[in-house]
């Protein structure tokens, strides 16, 4: 049954990708890409990667669609007909694809438990991590503890990307608060948004603090919370949103998250352990792991939330300034 669902979903994904190539209306392309993200989230659920599916649904279908739409608002929605020859690109792609297909025949068969990828560290993560770390969700254990150093790097990349976008586009200025924006004539949207925004934030907090036990964690929670504020900004206008959560505050928060993460590492350093070795943070190793994981997931959540939201602010304020001119 799993294989059958897999066959159908992957075929739909391939069809969507072909649609993206041939469509000239970029608005439709971005919407198709949103569908593409939802389809890949479904595939991830089917392949047992629930945490990944969660992230893909929130990030791919939520944040990146909004960012691409605000880019289209600035650059125009039609792709012009090109005078490129399509023969050469097609030849290169077909040749590369054929070589890769030939390469896949040497891959280990899909789903076989004897595959090399399941033989090394994975075995230890599955057998020992529930006792060693004390958490049922192995993905969180590996993400926050065994590969904590890696995750610190990823959080720093998200932070750096936010700085990059802000220096390219600039932050919204607060004195423009008088300008009208948002969807003020859409009463239904406003009422519905008011009802669901608190629920989204509540859900984000649940995902943040329940991520040790079920699917979820700092990355997903940060993105979901940012999506709630983005919805608020879309419906009630950017100036109102920037008054609730000021851009300067977001800059501080983005740095604070990375600081909490790295600070946990330094704290374990001073308590006699290695960098990011949580065992020394409490009286026994398992309790120490718990404290460490909660702290660094909090750091990740804060940074991802602040970074995603300030990226959105930067794009949205550019688009609004263009509308005024």
């Amino acid at each position: 049954m799993t294989e059958l669902i897999d066959l159908v979903l992957l075929a739909m994904l391939a069809i969507t990708a072909v649609g993206v190539i041939f469509l000239k209306d970029l608005f439709a392309v971005v919407m198709l890409f949103g569908i593409y993200s939802f389809l890949s989230a479904l595939i991830f659920v089917n392949l047992d990667a629930v945490d990944v599916a969660f992230t893909e649904a929130a990030v791919g279908a939520g944040i990146s669609t909004v960012l691409m739409l605000s880019t289209l608002a600035l650059t125009g929605r039609q792709e012009k007909v090109s005078d490129h020859k399509t023969f050469m690109p097609l030849l290169i792609v077909v040749a590369t694809g054929a070589a890769l297909i030939y390469g896949t025949l040497d891959m280990p068969p899909f789903g076989n438990p004897d595959n090399p990828v399941h033989q090394h560290v994975a075995l230890r993560y599955i057998q020992d991590s529930p006792q060693e770390i004390g958490l049922p969700n192995m993905v969180t254990s590996v993400l926050a503890s065994y590969r904590g150093f890696d995750t610190l790097g990823e959080t720093a990349v998200v932070f750096a990307a936010a700085i990059g976008v802000l220096s390219l586009l600039g932050m919204p200025k607060r004195e423009r608060a008088a300008i009208e924006s948002g969807l003020e004539s859409h009463l239904v949207l406003q009422v519905v948004a008011k009802i669901i925004i608190p629920l989204i934030i509540l859900f984000a907090l649940y995902v943040q603090f329940h991520g040790d036990y079920g699917p979820g964690g700092g990355f997903q929670a940060g993105v979901i919370a940012a999506a709630a504020i983005i919805l608020y900004a879309l419906v009630f206008g950017l100036p109102v949103a920037t008054q609730v959560l000021q851009p300067d505050l977001l800059k501080t928060l983005a740095a604070l998250g990375v600081l909490i993460y790295a600070g946990t590492g330094v704290a374990s350093f001073f308590l006699g352990g290695n960098f990011l070795d949580y065992n020394v943070l409490a009286s026994n190793p398992v309790a120490g792991q718990h404290v460490g994981i909660i702290l660094i997931e909090l750091g990740v959540g804060i940074t991802v939330f602040a970074a995603m939201l300030s990226i959105f602010y930067a794009f949205a304020s550019k688009a609004e300034r263009k509308n005024i001119q």
Binding site: A49, G60, S64, L67, L143, D150, E154, V157, A161
Partner: peptide, 14 residues
């Protein structure tokens, strides 16, 4: 992949 997705959207934004 979980971390790659979030990093991916951040770099796409750049």
């Amino acid at each position: 992949i979980l971390t790659a997705i979030v990093v991916g959207v951040a770099t796409t934004a750049v």
